[in-house]
Nucleic acid binder design. Structure first.
Lengths: 353, 353
DNA sequence: CTGAAAGCGCTTACAG
DNA sequence: CTGAAAGCGCTTACAG
């Protein structure tokens, strides 16, 4: 395939040096701020700057990068195996929006890797072929070798939404455990006792932490989740719908459901609707994320809000620390979510046992 | 600022050539498929491949780019002056999702420019400093010199959502004119005669085309829009709300509103609600875009659906044509939108004059 | 079939 | 204060 480069080439340092009648190193020094000893006479500096302007000189980023300069661009990789950002969700884009905001502040561009991470042998090279200074990995699966590999080969990286206490790279995430407890406690206060959980993919640490928080809150209240009240599944709508139907068709259906994300929660509401179970009268539902749509569905979703934008921005800041060689905290940086009570939760109609 | 590069350097072509005991050019030839005469004996080919694997060799993309290869990454620039993608909207992200899908298919990565285009002098350089092979500009303002500049300097580019018949670069867009006409005709069939329009920023060609389509459809039906029924404004929610209030408080309020995008339509519904005007009984509202939220608001929004994903993907395909030096159509490629009737439109309560 | 050399556009010591 | 040279890691004619 014959790919063309831009037609009119930009002037090079050599061109402006020639035009200014001086050496290339000096031109580099005044134009691109390289070199420490920027002692250049006003006269020649002006000659150089003028020449550059006339020639519309702009340094070639690729050449600078090859000569050892940072590229000032960071990479973003969606960590789910075989899933790219393109097939994604409100979640990923909210996070990316935060990353963009953070990157803008640091003068960085961001490149989105469209190819999913396969394994170290296949994918590591792309992370360090010179394009990016560092990478932010979103929602890496705990089964994947991506984080350990990046760490092993010294690729500056931070994990977003995949915190683990033994994370090989700095991590920023939301406190899913606390979020689940908030949801459960809210339902407990409303009088619910038969509470089920729709968990996410348990290869994702967020899903595990959500479930653990759910179980913990119940335990703290002296309640034991009924057998089968925490069916396994994924973060996808279909999985949520099926499990909700399963739960609602039990002889002892739950009076409330805590979903690991809003998509699952909305699916549960849909399932309830299809089974003529009223929300919130017969069934309370709590989500997690607070995606834009959450406030608009019927009934408006009670959910645990997380600051996706803030997390994206924070991830960039942490990556910058890594790039500067500054110390970074050993433990994941956790954002505290907040419960947003809307209309999908209410006291149970019949007092549960 | 002292930015670190990855700790463990990847092996270079020289390293593997040395290990394989052959020349660097040959290694380049077999490993990176450069050069046409790939006639290399099986024996040395194997030696090279083995050495590369052992050394975990991966070509340095920056060096290749400097040596004249395409970077296999395309840039995306949000064309609104002083607005970056980061402050954006469901619209931009849907388009980007399409771009990502298209880029993935072509083996391209995409870098999002976080800095807004200022003017040619300030920003042109960044578009051709070697990072990207070409760029997709989203929603460029007709006031901006961005498209003409890119064209003048031969930077491969395509305009997305900024079609103009005299576009300096290939364009892909939705047919806003047809979309508006669909909206108006739908209302006309319902029996409406007093129809107002909430237009977008008229520095954006989409807004102008929407308004023209609106006016045209009315004219075709032999109706003249009442004075002040097409107030100027922007695509933003606040602007939509204020204008809707203004329209509703008129002595002769419209019985229907055609908004240039869903955000404006939703704002209009909100305004109606705040003024105790029932939708759709007292006021019909039609949007444009069909953002995910549109189906979930109360009442579900009747709107003109555009295939944002498809447009993003198409833009990538057109950019690839440009990069390959293939001919591209002179006229903008227009996607035909489709009217989606939901619950925000109905026959007018009182027969309008 | 295979290698040495020049060049892509910069930066960085190192000399004057 | 300023310049010549080497080098970043590749590719591309050009020679054998």
């Amino acid at each position: 395939m014959d790919i063309k480069r831009p037609v009119s080439k930009t002037a090079s340092l050599r061109d402006v040096a020639a035009k200014a009648g001086i050496g290339i190193a000096t031109a580099s020094s005044v134009l691109n701020g390289s070199r420490s000893n920027t002692r250049v006479s006003e006269a020649t500096r002006k000659r150089i700057v003028d020449a550059a302007r006339e020639l519309r000189y702009h340094p070639n980023a690729v050449a600078r990068a090859l000569a050892g300069h940072p590229t000032k661009t960071l990479g973003v990789l969606f960590g789910l195996p075989r899933v790219t950002i393109a097939e994604s969700n409100p979640f990923a884009f909210a996070v990316i929006e935060g990353i963009l905001a953070g990157a803008a502040k640091e003068g960085y561009n961001v490149t989105l890797f469209t190819e999913p991470w396969v394994d170290a042998a296949q994918s590591l090279g792309k992370m360090r072929d010179g394009r990016v200074d560092g990478v932010i990995v979103i929602a890496a699966s705990s089964q994947s070798d991506i984080l350990p590999t990046l760490s092993e080969f010294g690729v500056p990286a931070v994990a977003l939404a995949a915190a683990a206490s033994d994370s090989p790279v700095p991590a920023v995430d939301v406190d899913n455990h606390a979020g689940s407890r908030m949801a459960v406690n809210h339902l407990l206060e409303l009088g619910h006792r038969r509470i089920a959980h729709l968990q996410g993919d348990d290869t994702l640490s967020s899903a595990v932490r959500s479930r653990d928080g759910f179980l913990q809150a119940l335990r703290d209240a002296g309640i034991e989740a009924a057998e089968g009240y925490v069916p396994a599944g994924t973060y996808e709508e279909k999985s949520g719908y099926e499990r909700a139907i399963f739960l609602l068709e039990r002889p002892d259906p739950p009076t409330a459901i805590v979903a690991a994300n809003d998509v699952l929660a909305i699916a549960a509401i849909q399932a309830a609707h299809d089974r003529n179970v009223r929300v919130p009268e017969d069934l309370s539902v709590v989500g997690f994320d607070d995606i834009p749509m959450a406030a608009f569905i019927d009934p408006p979703l009670t959910t645990v809000h997380q600051d996706l934008l803030g997390m994206g921005t924070k991830a960039v800041r942490v990556l910058m620390q890594v790039l500067r060689g500054e110390a970074t905290p050993g433990e994941p940086f956790l954002f505290m979510p907040v419960l947003v009570v809307r209309k999908s939760t209410a006291a149970p109609a019949v007092q549960s046992l």
